[in-house]
Design a binder for these strands. Structure first.
Length: 402
RNA sequence: GGGGGGAUUCCCGAGUGGCCAAAGGGGUCAGACUGUAAAUCUGAUGGCAACGCCUUCACAGGUUCGAAUCCUGUUCCCCCCA
């Protein structure tokens, strides 16, 4: 007969999970933890290889938060040593190796961003350089001998790359071993990761067994797709950053493809199944606006979420001016007869280059005080008080005379 | 150690002496449309006070009236054999 408290916790662990290896041992872990009052040690590794976290990263973080709320001990591993190797998971290319300095920079912003979701005060944050920096060559060899090449190249990412004649660095074989070794060092009871992490998580299990520890439970969570339905990645430009301002977060969610909504609803909002189904059955625009609001609420608060919604409606449905238009000055000289429009656009940063400015203007994308101007070289005189420049639908600037 | 293939613009990838600022796709930007920063469609996408000029096809030289393309050297990568 299973203890109802265990059952209840198990539900929290299981929600949205893809792989759970394996459930029986997890139940025993939970029961033991409840009995002894000792929290489980839940490990999650972050690889500070890029400085920004996005909504995809938020999924495991939200899971960690709910486990934290159950009283378990979150052990956040900052992979400052592993980052210098580069995780081959889900990659068909050699990752660039980072330097210490780059890693150090990323690390700070990283933990800050994780703190948006997790209670860092109750979290054990460890860097894995703590144990890897002190490892000598003999120990490294011993670690490397814990797996075979056959086991390693079994991985689909390595297979794919070999077939595509893409390079694989020897050091990349070390990555799973290092991540696994982290589990040994922190005596993890459970490790969480995206589905692309399953291999690495299982290596941790293997290493723990080899070193006579109880093997960790491995829990994987779905990788969320980006706004366009492809894998979410900053380099695809389809991600939403965790720390983006409410208006941007709302707007970006509004720009997602309809088909992606459901997974976002399930992974990132607290709404229950019935409610999600009902919303998705309704008007798609309404469903998306609600989703955008819910997500903004999770990472900011209710007030800024509804504020973002109002601002969005005002700007894009009613086509009114947004409330917070940046003010700027033209840093060149206002000649007596005025400056060419394209030079002004570039000067205030609404276009990257003069050519860019000309293109925008020629295509009818630029307005002065609401009026489309199509001639790049038409002269604009220094304004008396201020001038409203607009590029496209959502870039505005007030130009002050200085 | 030997043999073969490769490096092109933000990314992927065509281009093997002039028709090349360089096909196509992705991304991005703009326009039309509306349910919206969606989808779809259209256009643009090296720089420059601009019907012209300047810079770019790994790097450095060379051949040629003319080089992304040919030659020499250098760096990096992939494959096969040992």
């Amino acid at each position: 007969m299973i203890n109802p408290d265990v059952q209840r916790q198990l539900e929290v662990f299981r929600k949205n999970s893809v792989d759970l290896i394996e459930e029986g041992s997890l139940a025993r872990h939970i029961a033991k933890s409840l009995e002894s009052g000792k929290p489980m040690r839940v490990k999650f590794g972050m690889d500070p290889s890029s400085p920004d976290l996005h909504l995809g990263h938020a999924i495991p973080l939200l899971k960690l938060r709910s486990l934290q709320e159950l009283g378990h001990q979150i052990v956040l591993i900052v992979g400052d040593a592993t980052a210098m190797v580069g995780d081959p998971s889900g990659r068909n290319k050699l990752r660039p190796q980072l330097t210490r300095e780059q890693v150090e920079e990323n690390l700070i912003t990283y933990t800050e961003q994780a703190g948006e979701v997790l209670d860092l005060g109750a979290t054990e944050v460890r860097r894995n350089s703590e144990w890897f920096d002190g490892m000598n060559f003999e120990e490294l060899l011993r670690l490397a001998s814990r797996m075979t090449v056959a086991q390693m190249i079994e991985r689909d990412t390595f297979q794919t790359r070999m077939e595509a004649n893409e390079p694989i660095g020897i050091h990349e074989f070390l990555y799973p071993l290092m991540q696994g070794w982290d589990s040994v060092e922190v005596k993890a009871d459970l490790e969480i990761g995206g589905t692309d992490q399953l291999f690495n998580l299982l290596v941790g299990r293997r290493l723990q067994e080899q070193t006579k520890q109880a093997p960790q439970t491995c829990l994987t969570l779905p990788l969320i797709n980006g706004l366009d339905g492809r894998k979410m990645s900053k380099s695809y430009g389809n991600s939403v950053g965790l720390t983006e301002a409410p208006n941007d977060m709302f707007g970006k969610v509004m720009s997602m493809e309809d088909g992606v909504m459901e997974s976002f609803y399930r992974m990132l909002t607290p709404l229950d199944d019935a409610e999600i189904v009902a919303l998705l059955a309704g008007h798609p625009r309404e469903a998306k606006a609600r989703l955008a609001e819910e997500i903004t609420k999770v990472f900011h608060d209710g007030e800024s979420a509804s504020g973002a919604r109002d601002a969005f409606d005002r700007q894009f449905r009613e086509k009114k001016l947004p409330e917070d238009i940046a003010e700027c000055v033209y840093d060149g000289d206002w000649a007596e007869e005025g400056v060419p429009f394209f030079a002004l656009l570039r000067g205030v940063g609404l276009a990257k280059t003069g050519s860019d400015a000309r293109r925008i203007i020629e295509q009818g994308g630029a307005r002065i005080d609401g009026e489309v101007i199509r001639e790049p070289t038409s002269l604009v005189r220094r304004p008396e008080s201020k001038l409203l420049l607009q590029v496209g639908k959502r870039r505005f600037a007030w130009v002050l005379p200085r």
